[in-house]
């Protein structure tokens, strides 16, 4: 059926965005133990930066997008050094940086509104808005881009953690921070890099999403919520969990919205309800983390 095929594309696309947001939480959470709710605002900032690089300065797509991501990665690293690290080094409880980052949500949002205004701004897509004809359905070009780029980024992050020694070092910090430190792993570098990496990943989600909707200063919160839901469903442990959580959440949303015989106003709440029920049954999510049973 055409509808199911179109929905499959929609699920992969939305699942990719949600998985990226979940991953942005994960790369900060595992090595540092900090839940960073500001990931949504990082996506917003990257979208705005891409308005500047791709729209105002008219750079070609790849350099422009990469520059936007580098910008938000720098902001991520700066945030860690300026606001999180002093708290950690003074031995503050883990709740303190979490609350600080929640405050940063407001700071980022106001900065975006003051810097770029409150109107929706257009972000150019890399390959236009055409369609790829594949037999019974046509895949929108931007959907294909979202699926491809999010897939590459997720696979690349997985490869980093599984295949490189630095990735192993990050995992070691996540499993046993004290032992890792005593083995000479530079905990500061790991923290800074995880924030920068998380920002770049969230930024990618923002830059992928914005051509379809626009860059606007309020786009962060829904992305942060979806990402967190995907993270929890997937198990807060591994990259595979983020991917699975994102796809499950997207599938839930799309299928309920399309086929459930309830008003769509209610259909909006169903995925979150399902997440709550799911967690009652299986609190650890779908996939366990390394170092835990």
């Amino acid at each position: 059926m055409t509808d199911l095929l179109e929905l499959a594309v929609s699920i992969l696309e939305a699942g990719g965005i949600y998985a990226l947001m979940a991953l942005a939480y994960l790369v900060v959470l595992r090595p540092t133990g900090i839940i960073n709710f500001a990931v949504g605002e990082w996506a917003t900032l990257a979208s705005f930066f891409s308005v500047a690089t791709l729209g105002w300065w008219n750079l070609p797509y790849i350099p422009g997008a990469v520059l936007a991501l580098a910008g938000v990665a720098a902001i991520g690293a700066l945030t860690e050094q300026a606001t999180v690290r002093p708290m950690i080094e003074r031995g503050a409880p883990i709740l303190t940086p979490i609350l600080i980052l929640l405050g940063m949500v407001v700071v980022y949002r106001e900065a975006a509104a003051l810097g770029f205004g409150t109107q929706n701004l257009r972000v150019p897509p890399p390959l236009g808005f055409g369609r790829i004809d594949l037999g019974p359905i046509a895949i929108p070009m931007q959907s294909a881009v979202v699926i491809a780029v999010s897939g590459i980024m997720l696979a690349g992050t997985w490869a980093f953690f599984e295949r490189t020694i630095w990735g192993k070092a990050f995992q070691a910090v996540a499993i046993d921070r004290v032992a890792a430190g005593l083995m000479g792993i530079n905990l500061r570098l790991v923290a800074a890099f995880s924030f920068a990496g998380g920002a770049a990943i969230a930024g990618t989600a923002g830059v992928l999403q914005a051509p379809l909707t626009s860059a606007h200063y309020l786009m962060g919160l829904p992305l942060a919520i979806k990402g967190f839901s995907a993270l929890v469903i997937g198990g807060v442990g591994r990259v595979e969990g983020c991917i699975l959580g994102g796809l499950v959440l997207a599938a839930c949303e799309r299928l309920v919205m399309r086929y459930a015989p309830i008003p769509s106003g209610f259909a909006i709440g169903v995925p979150l309800l399902l997440m709550i029920l799911f967690l009652l049954v299986r609190p650890t999510g779908l996939i366990g983390a390394r170092g835990r049973t």
């Binding site: 630095w166 995992q171 499993i175 890792a180 170092g291």
Partner: peptide, 17 residues
């Protein structure tokens, strides 16, 4: 105090960090 969840070789690689 090995890193649980990683295998023996991976633990060594962390040591090589």
């Amino acid at each position: 105090r090995p890193f649980k969840g990683m295998n023996v070789l991976e633990n060594l690689l962390v040591g090589a960090h």
